[in-house]
Design a binder for these strands. Structure first.
Lengths: 258, 258
DNA sequence: CGGAACGTTGATGTATCTCAAGTGGGGTGG
DNA sequence: CCACCCCACTTGAGATACATCAACGTTCCG
């Protein structure tokens, strides 16, 4: 063993924390202590690997929190006729409540192979009860999710197809950058055009034509599931994208009503 | 003063509670004690009257909770070009957080004249902290709102215009019945066809034609801002409406992650 | 009685859907 | 290593739901 190897080993724990997108996300939303980060690393250490196109819920009946560590998942609703509406994307670092307290289920499916952690109900309740920085950060995520959902409503309800994708790509770019999963101008986007259609309320044929239009407008390239943003300003302008809804304003309040 | 007058006075407090839609809504979502109901009546006693077309936020900078007691309001998002997307309706009994912790505002506007109560941040925080039935019920409302938003996404993203309205009318009927503001087959629906268009992502002209289609299908009548449901089963079938997302399943969990 | 806001109707344009037939690439089995 | 296959992507043509523009009717209120 060389000296450099032992140095690497010493640095291993913080490096793992940096690689854990759940920690990376939450530390932007609250002042996490070293213990908080350690705790988050511990409770998400037990992971499951699932393939693309799998349903994650209802899975573990006693589970409290489902955390995506790698890959893309989504929440969706199926219509009786079979058509599907994706209601949110879950990218690494995102989580959702694995309970179903309402009389209707909102399934979670994978859009790519995923690494997922389940945090038990008892564990997460204890953390929430303690009311520390983690609890605060998790409350912030629910506000951001709510705002994101409302933005999607504007997107689908009021914007033309190319504007919808411009907005979506800007949102994904921002979210993925926040957890270190986007390069300067590109990121991996594993969903199919079929999935994109179910996200935007469009047919997959029209998705294809819209993407071609965005390519022709010199805004993006998309090849082999890698999206490259050629003109970020242009894409933001077309999608009317303002990242404000994805970030907390100033110091987060000590309490949230949720 | 007659005897009957004093009897009426004796009965006044419970009668007021029954008339308070905030209490009526929350008591369906948690086991409120008599003290809880009294407390809710007290904290919403200080009301403001606002006309239609007014903005409610940002209004009281220190406010914690905005509660609609009479009338319809909505949350909406304006696009730079001026077009509007309504992201949720607020009917009597509904509330929202009057804070704006995110870097983007989501205004609340009235769709009719409204009676509104502001509950101070300190008051509501104390209630949330105490963790009683009221806190529990309020947490449930956020779950229901989230589920409702996702249903709207399906509505706008995947359903034809007549199906959208069928779903919306079923939802409103269910919500208004829960607070005693719908008759057996009709309720007051004060928004204009313009507002309905901004809700469903449709032009107001198409709203008008869609409503005519629903009338022609013998499903509803709509005159003078009163919607009458002629065929509830038919309307539910057309809108694929399942009220499950508006109700808690079984006994609400003692804790919610939110 | 007049005006403003809301609702209705018609004509025309267009974004998006549906149906249908390819193309391309990456994995698998022979 | 090649052939094949499957799945995603692409392209074309025709249908349609919805938007836009413009005019007119109606109701309500001052």
């Amino acid at each position: 063993m060389s000296v450099s190897a032992s140095i690497q080993q010493l640095a291993a724990a913080p490096a793992l924390e940096r690689a854990n997108p759940f920690i990376r996300k939450l530390e932007r939303l609250g002042e996490l202590s070293a213990e908080d980060r350690m705790l988050l690393a511990t409770i998400t250490a037990d992971v499951i690997r699932v393939e693309a196109g799998a349903d994650l819920l209802p899975g573990e009946p006693t589970a409290g929190l489902l955390v995506i560590l790698e890959g893309f998942a989504c929440r969706y609703i199926l219509r009786p006729g079979g058509s599907r509406q994706i209601t949110s994307y879950m990218v690494p670092g995102d989580h959702c409540d694995a309970r179903e307290p309402l009389g209707v289920v909102n399934p979670v499916g994978t859009l790519s192979a995923c690494t997922v952690a389940f945090v038990s109900r008892e564990t997460i309740f204890a953390i929430i009860r303690a009311g520390g920085a983690i609890a605060q950060a998790i409350r912030m995520t629910t506000l951001i999710e709510d705002a994101t959902l409302r933005q999607w409503l504007v997107n689908i309800g009021r914007r033309a197809s190319d504007e919808r994708f411009a907005h979506l790509f800007c949102e994904l770019y921002t979210r993925l950058r926040a957890v270190g999963l986007a390069n300067v101008d590109s990121f991996r986007m594993p969903m199919t055009q079929f999935d994109l259609g179910d996200t935007m309320g469009l047919s997959y044929v029209h998705v294809n034509r819209t993407l071609q239009s965005l390519r022709q407008q010199q805004l993006i390239t998309l090849k082999g599931r890698v999206l490259t943003i050629l003109d970020l300003r242009g894409l933001q302008a077309l999608g009317e994208f303002d990242p404000g809804y994805l970030t907390v304003r100033g110091r987060p309040a000590a309490f949230s009503l949720r």
